[in-house]
Design a protein around this nucleic acid. Structure first.
Lengths: 257, 257
DNA sequence: CTCAAATGTCTCTATAATAGAACCGTATTT
DNA sequence: AAATACGGTTCTATTATAGAGACATTTGAG
């Protein structure tokens, strides 16, 4: 029960990403294996509305300023910078690694806030980055607390492999998630990128449904030893507790589905 | 030559703004005077793609996390935080008023970067804010350097009045723009909001076409006296010169039309 | 300099998607 | 308990779209 034209058009938008920020009409048409007439009309309509702009010299299209407006509105709505970000910065200073907040959105986790490590070598990620829920500590710790049927949905949605460490077997994944849920945190190495470790804990809404995660990440050569890991878990859980208190207080009603 | 379905759908998106961040299906249908079936299908399609989310309790729709992604990409593309923002912060510290960068986008100016004043009473605006080009110093100083035919286009597009000070007469506007272009800056009071003054200077691309403006704004009770205005203009123009140098260096090719 | 291939844009019409009224089940209000 | 309002669904006449093809430019190779 969706509009095919709009649905297709939004699909076209997805091709504008960090790797491919600009597209020519025929270039994109070829990539998507769609008639260039169709792509042209879609791009022209987005441009008319300011969602795309066309470079008058190269004639290629790229994202327009309209997104700045909507992006800021979403950011304002989440309202993390006043209370949650300071907690994250504090945490990042204590642990000397980057800390980030990941939001559940459909079958993906979306990075919504970041506190970067002060070290020169650090884990770095853009706000708005989208990652499938089966990859990495920040996402798996969310997935672990989802109802069984949603876990299956997500796995059926496809378990793409990013590195040799990425878990792609459903049974292995379910066992892993079981363990994560029991211990209350997820530690992983090299799943998202081969040189990165991550440690994540879940965050919930007022109905005790998981909606987000708080994660520490850094270069794999600085990963905590087995005896130091419990300390890191403790510090992270303390930060998460403070954020959780804020969520509860302001009845953070944040939806999934 | 545009897709009507997509065009209408993007029009629907525009109703999600700071004042009205959430909409029910029939509520929005009534507001737009369109059948609720149509609105429902549009909203459902946006939701499927993550551009809107539906609160499962209230069933109302609001902006989704997808915009975070696109907003960040546009911000990264502009790449103002490394070089331009420090100049703006420096300027804001010197003058003790807020400084902001406005980008030309069609018939609007869009706020793309801000350095806020350290004073408790200050001019404050969100990134992504859109203002018609005929209103306020930041926008008029851009309009003043546009070709005559585009000035007329913009005025034909409608000169909405925000305050009693807003210029809505085309002839008066043209005379004002003429003066602005000759002096190289625009000082205005109470056009955007009745309690705000603004002082703006233009910024150009490599083809000497105006693409943006740099503006100082503050509460009207702190507006510069006639003898102090030249000093403020100087300081602002010095900051603008530095930014302009950066634009030239990195051949900032930023389109309008 | 010439030719060929590629580009964005536009036109046309069979066809497939949409508009819009009416309807459904549920929740809320009176 | 009746009435109203809501999100969501179904149906079909109508209308917008898909997709091939044409066009004027631009680009790059020979």
């Amino acid at each position: 029960m969706t509009l095919k034209t709009l649905d297709n058009s939004l699909e076209v938008l997805k091709y504008f990403n960090k790797e491919n920020p600009t597209w020519g009409v025929r270039e994109l048409a070829k990539e998507m294996d769609i008639s260039h007439s169709i792509i042209y009309r879609i791009l022209a309509t987005f441009e008319k509305q300011g969602f795309l702009i066309q470079n008058p010299e190269t004639k290629k299209y790229e994202l327009g300023l309209r997104f700045l407006e909507y992006g800021q509105m979403v950011k304002d709505k989440l309202n993390l910078s006043d209370f949650v970000l300071p907690i994250m910065i504090n945490l990042a200073d204590t642990i000397k690694e980057s800390v980030f907040l990941t939001w559940l959105d459909g079958t993906d986790g979306v990075t919504v806030e970041i506190a970067e490590s002060s070290q020169t070598i650090k884990f770095s990620v853009s706000i708005g980055t989208r990652t499938p829920l089966h990859i990495g500590a920040s996402c798996k710790v969310i997935m672990a607390y989802l109802p069984e049927e949603r876990k299956k949905e997500i796995m059926k949605h496809g378990m793409k492999r990013l590195t040799p460490e990425t878990i792609t077997d459903p049974d292995e994944m379910l066992a892993d998630l079981e363990k994560i849920q029991q211990q209350g945190w997820c530690f992983s190495t090299g799943e998202y990128s081969h040189s990165v470790f991550g440690l994540g804990v879940p965050l919930f809404n007022s109905k005790k449904e998981v909606i987000a995660s708080l994660t520490i990440a850094g270069p794999i050569y600085r990963k905590p030893t087995e005896e130091k890991l419990p300390d890191m878990v403790n510090v992270l859980q303390y930060g998460a507790m403070n954020i959780q208190r804020y969520f509860d207080q302001y009845s953070f009603k944040l939806y999934h589905e």
